[in-house]
């Protein structure tokens, strides 16, 4: 990826994503955290576009920003009065240490050249969306079906759990 446009787009989106992610964990206000999370989702969607994965871009906005983030904000609203703040728990120091060391490990692995530093993207024989459809419905049709069942089960489970007991 060497053209000017995508490179600029990558850097802008990457910075936005990381800053917003820091905002998610750093913000004192849970509602702000949720808004930051949405920004992360949108920035990641933009990154998909940079990687010319349009279908994932659409799905990411729709599912993450349109549904999951909305659900989370809804949860924040409904449970607001008890948990106004977004404090760290007791184990924040070990958590920080773990996260940092994991990052160091991954950075070292990457720096050691675990993956070829390719800057060229593979050319697509046909449109990205068609390819995804082929991938989903040919080699991965079984996982696809399983994922559907998982979604269905999750939906039913969520309804059952969150339903108010009657009587």
């Amino acid at each position: 990826m060497t053209e000017l446009g995508p490179v600029i787009a990558f850097w802008v989106l990457a910075v936005v994503a990381v800053v917003a992610a820091v905002g998610v964990v750093g913000s004192r206000n849970l509602f702000h955290s949720a808004i930051f999370l949405t920004v992360v989702f949108l920035a990641v969607a933009g990154l998909y576009l940079v990687l010319s994965s349009d279908f994932l871009f659409g799905v990411q906005i729709m599912v993450y920003a349109g549904a999951i983030a909305v659900l989370i904000v809804f949860a924040v609203m409904l449970t607001h009065n008890i948990q106004a703040g977004n404090q760290e728990g007791r184990q924040w120091i070990p958590a920080l240490g773990l996260a940092l060391s994991l990052f160091v490990v991954m950075a070292v692995v990457l720096a050691a050249g675990a993956f070829p530093a390719s800057s060229t993207m593979a050319a697509l024989p046909e449109s990205n969306t068609t390819l995804i459809a082929r991938a989903l419905f040919n080699p991965y049709v079984l996982p696809f079906e399983i994922a559907s069942v998982v979604l269905l089960v999750a939906m039913i489970g969520a309804i059952v759990i969150a339903r108010e007991e009657r009587g």
């Binding site: 279908f55 799905v59 906005i61 969306t129």
Partner: peptide
């Protein structure tokens, strides 16, 4: 290619 999906996705952000 994903015109319709795109439309649904961005308009869902109004919430």
């Amino acid at each position: 290619d994903i015109g319709v999906l795109y439309f649904q996705a961005v308009t869902s952000l109004t919430a």
